[in-house]
Amino acid sequence: MLTAQNVAVARAGVMVLAGVSFSLNAGRALILRGPNGAGKTTLLRAVAGLQPISGGILTAVEDDIAYGAHSDGVKPTLTVAENLNFWAQIYGSDLAADAMTAMQLDPLATRRAGQLSAGQKRRLGLARILATGRKIWVLDEPTVSLDTASVALFGAAVQAHLNAGGAALIATHIDLGFAADVLDITPFRAGADTPVLSGQFDEAFL
């Protein structure tokens, strides 16, 4: 569903990762690991289509991808249900109610999102991913500020998504409690010996 061949990504004109290859099939999850600043976020943003890759080939159907970033895009003045319904409408799906139940947000439905705790807000952010109905989930540190029970809840949601033929690419440090392939991106960090890509980035000036 999603393959990367020799992909290189850059941030602010500086190469971050080079030579990253992986492939993600239906029903599988791939966990990205690596220390802070290794380039996980940059890679995920490139996969999500927010920034161009600077080398290699990235194949995916863009309309299959749902991207979940560090921040949830939750509007504090809207209620939980309004937040979720909005994104479901944007993606043209009718899964808002299911997503709300899956992330156990039903008791909070009419609460303003501004009054939620950090963990509840995160659950709302994850429910948004569920509500998109997209096949490939691209998630950046989805479990930040979640408690153990919520992590298990999220793990179960991902598992259900995989069982239904979906796929997930997740950057995380913790064990999510389902079978997944692991890709450590540390070896792909771009160094001074990274081959120069002609004319594309600041290397053109060297």
Binding site: L50, Y67, A69, G73, K75, G92
Partner: peptide, 16 residues
């Protein structure tokens, strides 16, 4: 506001 809370990223990756 949409930029600060990340909504703009999400809108840019949405089908719109």
């Amino acid at each position: 506001l949409d930029y600060e809370d990340g909504s703009l990223d999400l809108l840019a990756t949405s089908p719109l």
